[in-house]
Design a protein around this nucleic acid. Structure first.
Lengths: 252, 252
DNA sequence: CGATCTCTTGAGTTCCCTCAACTTAGGTGG
DNA sequence: CCACCTAAGTTGAGGGAACTCAAGAGATCG
């Protein structure tokens, strides 16, 4: 199907996904080979392009290789709420094909490269490669933890705390996949997108960002966040470093 | 281990769990037998008693047989946010033992009967009984859908819509496990608990409930909800019936 | 039958929203 | 390269939804 050149290309593009899984559960060469094979043939999406829409029949599992993607839902009144950000290496629900239809949409936030893993390949991998299965289940548990943290943030934190908390989360996630320098990382999200994720308005997000900048905690310019005072930011956010479960339990 | 009397008792208590799974994916007699066996030895919890606390090492999977249970988290400032309600038949995260420690607590809201399934029993069942695995994965996907719906509600609905939406969700869930009559069901949650789930204060929940009562949409008394005008309530909530995925996709 | 929890209602405050205008940045074509 | 266009960011003024504080009524239980 693909030349050896293609294979190397695919291999390099799937690195983030594989290395993320490998960080959760050590993978063998055979695991990595089957993963590289499964997540081949990536596709490009433009900003604001939907990967799949609410109401659609779920297809293959998505794996983000490059760029940012989000899950979102539009309410009858036109308001939008983003429920999750997917960064390079992140995948969507494992068993999604069990459901009849999508209850939300998934959209590229930036230009994004996304691979797909067919249902059959998934079943095969989960059944025969236990390390892959364990790693994917661990990744899914982490994603669920993030969702719960978002509920807590939106429900009980004020706007300042909420912004700070999201930035902390995204910084940790970016760093764990090698996309953050010390105290700085690329955040290609407009204030409107941040607002849709935080349950705020873009205007208010703008004011909060100014407040955090003036307070010397962090600043955003040109799609890049600089964390000026990590201690202060963590303090404002009430951020619990451990919630992203960066240390997995030993296999047993 | 247990007498036949015990077995029958257990069997009746696990009915809701098994019948819920059976509603998602048809189970064989053998599936049902192994489930009854695995979810034996239930334990009683008192209201406000924790099943497990944030920071604890995850143990076996919990399955609620009777009563209401919630996931929650307490913030540094003392505020509490409930992230999920578990009703009879609901279970906790399948692969939770992959994680090092709990990132939230789980607590009985009412007096509750809860069974546990050990890690080994779970692995065994998931590996050898594909119907059970499919049903449990479907249940988990539904729970994730509910979490996403909560993010949307808390993020983008006002208090009235939020209360109405939660009541719609809980009514559908109660009805699907046979715990709701036509337009009426038991809701053993104080206004403070509702507030903690909705990201509101108890005082405001009280005002909203009055508003909904006066509007003739629904009324709560003595732990029981009466839906007076379902159409109006659904309309206020902007409720999408399909989000609970009550129709699973056919096995393929 | 007092103690305690839950519910209810009022008054005042605050956080965030809405609306609106203006500035800045980035992209495109003449 | 400038002129234009559009999207994104910034700031102000005013309003409203939800919060806080407080006090009292009602229910539940030992």
């Amino acid at each position: 199907m693909s030349s050896s050149g293609d294979c190397r290309y695919v291999s390099s593009m799937t690195n983030r996904f594989i290395s993320k899984l490998n960080g959760l559960v050590p993978l063998t060469a055979s695991d990595i080979a089957i993963l590289e094979d499964a997540a081949a043939r990536p596709r490009e999406y433009q900003p604001r392009q939907d990967l799949i829409r609410e109401g659609d029949e779920p297809g293959p599992m998505f794996v983000v290789l490059e760029g940012w993607v989000c899950r979102y839902k539009i309410l009858p009144n036109g308001a939008r709420q983003i429920m999750a950000f997917l960064m390079p290496g992140d995948g969507c629900d494992l068993h999604i094909t069990l459901l009849n239809e999508m209850d939300h949409s998934i959209q590229a936030v930036t230009k994004a490269t996304v691979a797909t893993i067919s249902k059959d390949e998934m079943s095969e991998m989960l059944a025969t490669h236990h390390n892959i299965a364990r790693a994917m289940y661990a990744a899914q548990l982490i994603d669920e933890g993030i969702m719960r943290a978002w509920i807590v943030s939106i429900g009980r934190r004020n706007a300042t705390e909420r912004v700070a908390h999201l930035i902390c989360e995204l910084y940790i996630r970016a760093r764990s996949i090698g996309l953050a320098d010390e105290g700085e990382f690329a955040l290609p999200l407009s204030q409107a997108v941040l607002a849709d994720a935080l349950g705020l308005t873009a205007v208010h997000v703008n004011r909060i960002l100014k407040e955090l900048r003036v307070a010397g905690a962090m600043s955003i310019k040109r799609g890049s966040v600089t964390i000026l005072d990590p201690i202060a930011l963590i303090q404002i956010a009430g951020f619990d470093e451990n919630y992203l479960h960066r240390r997995m339990r030993r296999a047993g």
